[in-house]
């Protein structure tokens, strides 16, 4: 009934193991994987842990960030460069599970789990993050949109592992925020909205808005963005963005909320996030 547990210490070793055990599961924090294995009582031939792969356990801060696949969320949220440049990501991690979960779970794992409501995905979408994948054949990078293909489905190919999440440096004047609602404090998202706004005086400049739990995959809301970009900052614009967002998304009804309420709430969060970003005190940065 058991399985082999491997703890490679280099990426090369990890890739060898992945090639040797094509049906193996890759484990970092295990906060999603172990729940899934227990629930399905599936016994994989091997578990390959990334926790001891040195190259994957730190955050490099150069031109943007490179966050190793085995870095726990707590370390992401407390990293000074993340707090300074990517506050929406900090917002997302703050509401992510419990402290115990945040001590174990990883950014890469959150994306690989490919939940429509993955809390870290909307912030990474507005930051143009890239997923770094490695295999024996080499490295490739995918956008979040190209990586998460559907509920539980990713573009990971056989023999490939996610080694890092790369986030380019943010525009200097951009502000960003992630707002999320659950049923209780510790919950999965009913809906979550990330927004990034650059102001050009009293006019909205470049804007990015992304939402989770509103479609089969976390996604940007380009139509809502185009309502805001170039418009006068103010309640009227935020209200139009709210209305547009409610139409643009395609949520489902489930035990957490109805489709109708998800549309309503996403609109509210879009409106609130923009209002906060535009206010002098700002949200986020």
């Amino acid at each position: 009934m058991g399985f082999e547990y491997h703890q490679p210490s280099t990426t090369a070793e990890a890739l060898e193991l992945v090639a040797r055990f094509p049906d193996a599961e890759i484990i970092a924090g295990g906060t999603d994987l172990m729940v899934r294995l227990n629930k399905t009582r599936r016994v994989p031939p091997a578990l390959i842990s990334l926790r001891r792969v040195q190259e994957l356990t730190h955050i490099e801060n150069g031109s943007g960030l490179r966050i190793g696949a085995a870095v726990p969320l707590r370390d992401v949220a407390t990293h000074p460069a993340v707090a300074a440049g990517f506050p929406a990501l900090v917002d997302a991690i703050r509401v992510f599970g419990s402290p115990q979960i945040r001590n174990m779970a990883t950014l890469a794992g959150n994306l690989c789990n490919a939940s429509p409501g993955a809390d870290c995905a909307p912030p990474l979408l507005i930051y143009d993050a890239l997923v770094e994948l490695r295999s024996a054949a080499g490295v490739r990078e995918l956008t979040i949109e190209d990586f998460i293909l559907g509920p539980g489905a990713t573009a990971l190919e056989a023999g490939e592992i996610v080694t890092a999440i790369r986030v380019p440096p943010p525009p200097p004047a951009a502000r960003s925020i992630y707002l999320r609602k659950g049923r209780v404090q510790m919950d999965l998202a009913i809906t979550g909205v990330a927004a990034r706004l650059e102001m050009d005086g009293a006019t909205c400049g470049a804007v990015r808005i992304a939402a989770g739990a509103v479609a089969p995959v976390p996604r940007r809301l380009p139509r809502t963005e185009s309502v805001v970009a170039g418009a006068a900052a103010g309640a009227e614009t935020w209200a139009r963005a709210r209305a547009e967002a409610q139409h643009e998304i395609s949520p489902i009804s489930d035990v957490r909320a109805s489709e109708q309420y998800r549309r309503h709430l996403t609109g509210v969060l879009v409106e609130r996030s923009l209002a906060r970003l535009a206010s002098t005190n700002g949200g986020g940065t």
Binding site: R183, V184, Q185, M186, V255, R256
Partner: peptide, 22 residues
């Protein structure tokens, strides 16, 4: 929650009780 007698939220993931945070 149930649908045709089958319980849809058999666990604390979707059966929410207040925690200390609430």
């Amino acid at each position: 929650h149930s649908s045709e007698g089958r319980i849809l939220n058999p666990g604390f993931t979707d059966y929410k009780i207040p925690t200390a945070a609430d």
